[in-house]
């Protein structure tokens, strides 16, 4: 193992079912149902997944959902906007915690 993250490991996801396979099966069943066409299209779900993949900074998910977005008809412009949505929410979430900083500052200040 030369790196913690190996590209080929993505294809080995099913190995997680080696122990307690019933849990993996339940997860995969849930996962596939979530990502299937529903009130949202497969294309929209792939864009959401791509944004989330960036916020959780999972290289496997970014790889998988970049491809999934392209394969569901999205283009790099739309995918970049999705990543910006993720960045905006993450940035906003950081900044809103500044209110807590203000609260603590106010509490301890004379």
């Amino acid at each position: 193992m030369s790196h913690y993250y190996e590209e080929n490991d993505l294809e080995r996801f099913a190995e997680l079912g080696r122990y307690r396979p019933e849990l993996f099966e339940i997860f995969m069943n849930y996962y596939q149902n979530v990502m299937a066409e529903g009130a949202l299209s497969v294309r929209e779900k792939a864009l959401i997944a791509l944004a989330v993949a960036h916020t959780v900074q999972c290289p496997y998910c970014i790889d998988a959902y970049t491809r999934a977005c392209l394969e569901s008809g999205s283009n790099p412009e739309e995918m970049t906007e999705a990543v910006h949505v993720a960045a905006a929410i993450k940035g906003g979430a950081t900044l809103i915690h500044g209110v807590q900083m203000h609260n603590v500052t106010d509490k301890v200040s004379i």
Binding site: S41, V42, R43, R67, L70, E71, S72, G73
Partner: peptide, 17 residues
């Protein structure tokens, strides 16, 4: 056809787009 090493989207969906 896809612009790279990936599969095309489902035909009917891409036609709508």
């Amino acid at each position: 056809n896809p612009v790279g090493a990936y599969f095309p989207p489902p035909q009917a969906e891409l036609e709508i787009l």
